[in-house]
């Protein structure tokens, strides 16, 4: 059951993107293009999703544990910092360039479109580059700490 539940959730998520039309970059760009023939559909998608997710997450908060797992895996970070703002800013630029965010991009792999395959490969490369950069930063930080500890 633990493997069926995420599969069903992926299917429902994919159906939502298909039915709303948000799987199509042109539909997303129609929302982002506020100076053109503006299409507010994406705002309705988000509003409807939140109308379900806000009470749904409140319900989940009342359960001590998920149905098929030992604990909830909630993001631990709080507070606004520079990585959050700069990361969201960069993501928005990429999103606006093509009209694809990660969900629709992965779902569109089903069409075997060469452009989608290249986009997803570049997206994966961007993620790997970020993680490698973070790791080297952490390693350098650790080295500096060790150096100062032996110096002192």
């Amino acid at each position: 059951m633990w493997i069926i539940a995420p599969l069903l959730c992926g299917l429902i998520f994919g159906a939502g993107l298909l039915i709303s039309g948000m799987v199509q970059p042109t539909k997303v760009l129609g929302f982002l293009d506020i100076f053109g023939a503006w299409d507010p559909s994406l705002a309705v998608v988000m509003g409807a999703a939140l109308a379900v997710s806000i009470p749904g997450f409140m319900l989940a908060d009342r359960n001590a544990r998920p149905w098929f797992a030992g604990q909830y895996f909630r993001p631990g970070k709080s507070g606004i910092d520079l990585p959050l703002v700069s990361g969201a800013g960069l993501f928005g630029i990429g999103w606006g360039l093509v009209g694809l965010c990660p969900g629709p991009a992965l779902e569109s792999l089903a069409t075997l479109s060469p452009g989608i395959i290249v986009f997803v490969a570049a997206m994966a490369a961007g993620m790997i580059a970020h993680d490698a950069w973070q790791q080297s930063r952490l390693a350098a930080q650790r080295e500096r700490l060790l150096a100062s500890a032996t110096d002192g």
């Binding site: 633990w2 539940a5 995420p6 069903l8 959730c9 992926g10 429902i12 998520f13 159906a15 939502g16 993107l17 298909l18 039915i19 709303s20 039309g21 948000m22 559909s41 994406l42 309705v44 998608v45 988000m46 509003g47 409807a48 999703a49 939140l50 109308a51 379900v52 997710s53 749904g56 997450f57 319900l59 989940a60 359960n63 544990r65 998920p66 149905w67 098929f68 797992a69 604990q71 909830y72 895996f73």
Partner: peptide, 21 residues
């Protein structure tokens, strides 16, 4: 279609949280 699709996306997010956390 935006409202129906959006509600399904919200439902998926809630079900994933309820089932697997």
């Amino acid at each position: 279609s935006a409202a129906i699709g959006g509600a399904l996306i919200g439902l998926s997010a809630v079900l994933l949280m309820l089932s697997t956390g």
